[in-house]
């Protein structure tokens, strides 16, 4: 699907582990996610939805995403 090899999460680090940042993508569009420091959430730019990270566990159920 043309996903390039560039890191999926820019600025990932303290929010979630490196392993997760390498393999997690947006559950709906399968596009890369961006880590947002202020809101501690993962943002999918392609569908403009942010997924929360609760106690270090990213929550990527489509229903939990916020517009």
């Amino acid at each position: 699907m043309g996903l390039s090899s560039k890191p999926l999460l820019k600025l990932a680090g303290e929010g979630i582990s490196k392993t997760l940042s390498e393999i997690l993508v947006c559950p709906v569009s399968k596009q890369p996610l961006r880590y947002c420091k202020e809101t501690t959430s993962l943002v999918s730019d392609s569908i403009a939805v942010s997924f929360p990270i609760k106690e270090g566990i990213p929550c990527l159920v489509p229903r939990d995403g916020k517009f």
Binding site: I23, L24, P27, C59, D64
Partner: peptide
Amino acid sequence: VVGDEEFLPIK
């Protein structure tokens, strides 16, 4: 990770 099997968030 909390995720749905129907929407797998894996690259």
